[in-house]
């Protein structure tokens, strides 16, 4: 850890975090565009999410009579934890000092902190929709947690570390190998990511006023900059899960030095990987229909079973 705890390392990590936060809406928009193209609709312009955010930041904030301080603090905490989580994960540079600040389990904890406040905000105004969203969000997050942890465990057992930078470094140094444990870990993480970021078939990010909505129900009462922060945080969360998936399981191309050439390659590689993942997500969302609410536990049980088989096959089949 100590060898990259120098000033340049910190600055580079900071710059990387800023970049992450800056491009997160772009990735969300890429998914949206790909989906529109697939469904023969006209896609929104590339910079549409930024325009939306600017518009929302400029609007007046209106509070419900029953809203308390929790309601006003929550957007900042939700957004702050998302930024914190974004700063931890290897993005363009593999080895960043921020990764030593918090390992994979802290990452899960940080996201859970944001979710806690998001759910409280949903309950705060006292509407039925908000409570409904909070209740569902917390339930499904709780069910996703064991699968997520099992994936972390499989990775950590393999690389004997929970430090995300070390894990990425380990995979880069290893010769390329086909590991069943990683295969199932990847699948499980994809399923967990879909559930946690509220994509189809668990939740539909594009609709309001549907009886099965989860995330949108919690933020119904938000306006102005509060709503902007909430929307931004959910775009960040999508980008976090996407980057985590591609960089942990397909780390090739990520830069291990600050050398401009390798950073350039890393940017290109990451763009390509994210573009493919985004397109795949859009394809899946086009092909699959939204699930009935009480099918979601089954969906998450599949994720857990896959992660469990991943862990077991690591122990049984890769025990060398």
């Amino acid at each position: 850890m100590a060898d990259y705890l120098n000033l340049a390392g910190w600055l580079a990590a900071l710059a990387q975090t800023v970049l992450f936060v800056a491009i997160a809406p772009l990735f969300a928009n890429w998914v949206k565009r790909a989906k529109c193209t697939l469904q023969n609709r006209r896609p929104p312009p590339w910079l549409q999410p930024y325009r939306d955010l600017r518009r929302l930041f400029g609007k007046e904030v209106v509070l419900a009579h029953t809203a308390s301080h929790v309601f006003r603090i929550a957007p900042y905490i939700v957004f702050g934890t998302a930024v914190l989580a974004a700063s931890i994960i290897p993005f363009i540079l593999a080895e960043i000092p921020f990764a030593a600040m918090a390992d994979a389990i802290v990452l899960v904890g940080t996201l859970a902190l944001g979710r806690f406040f998001l759910a409280l905000a949903g309950l705060d105004v006292g509407t039925s929709f908000g409570g409904m969203g909070s209740s569902r969000e917390m339930t499904f997050a709780a069910l996703a947690e064991p699968a997520m942890l099992m994936v972390v465990f499989t990775l950590a057992m393999l690389a004997s570390s929970t430090n995300l930078s070390t894990v990425v470094g380990f995979f880069l140094e290893q010769p390329l190998a086909l590991r069943p444990s990683l295969l199932f870990g990847l699948l499980a993480l994809l399923l967990v990511g879909i559930a946690e970021t509220g994509r189809i078939p668990v939740d539909n990010p594009a609709t309001h006023l549907e009886l099965t909505m989860i995330h949108e129900a919690m933020i119904l009462e938000y306006t102005g900059r509060h709503l902007a922060l909430m929307e931004y945080a959910s775009q960040l969360k999508l980008a976090i899960y996407a980057v985590l998936t591609v960089n942990l399981f397909l780390p090739w191309g990520i830069s291990r030095t600050l050398d401009p050439a390798s950073v350039g390659i890393a940017v290109l590689a990451l763009t390509a990987k994210l573009a493919v993942l985004g397109a795949l997500l859009a394809l899946a969302e086009t092909l699959v229909a939204k699930m009935r609410l009480f099918r979601v536990p089954t969906f998450l049980a599949v994720a857990f079973t896959l992660s469990l088989i991943g862990m077991l096959s690591f122990i049984m089949l890769e025990g060398h």
């Binding site: 029953t66 759910a119 409280l120 705060d124 997050a141 709780a142 947690e145 465990f153 857990f304």
Partner: peptide
């Protein structure tokens, strides 16, 4: 994994407690 599940369920439970008792 059981520990993770019970930790996450505890968070669910305390969102319930705090949200129902103090908010709204």
């Amino acid at each position: 994994a059981v520990l993770a599940l019970s930790g996450a369920l505890a968070a669910t439970c305390f969102v319930k407690v705090y949200g129902v008792a103090f908010l709204g």
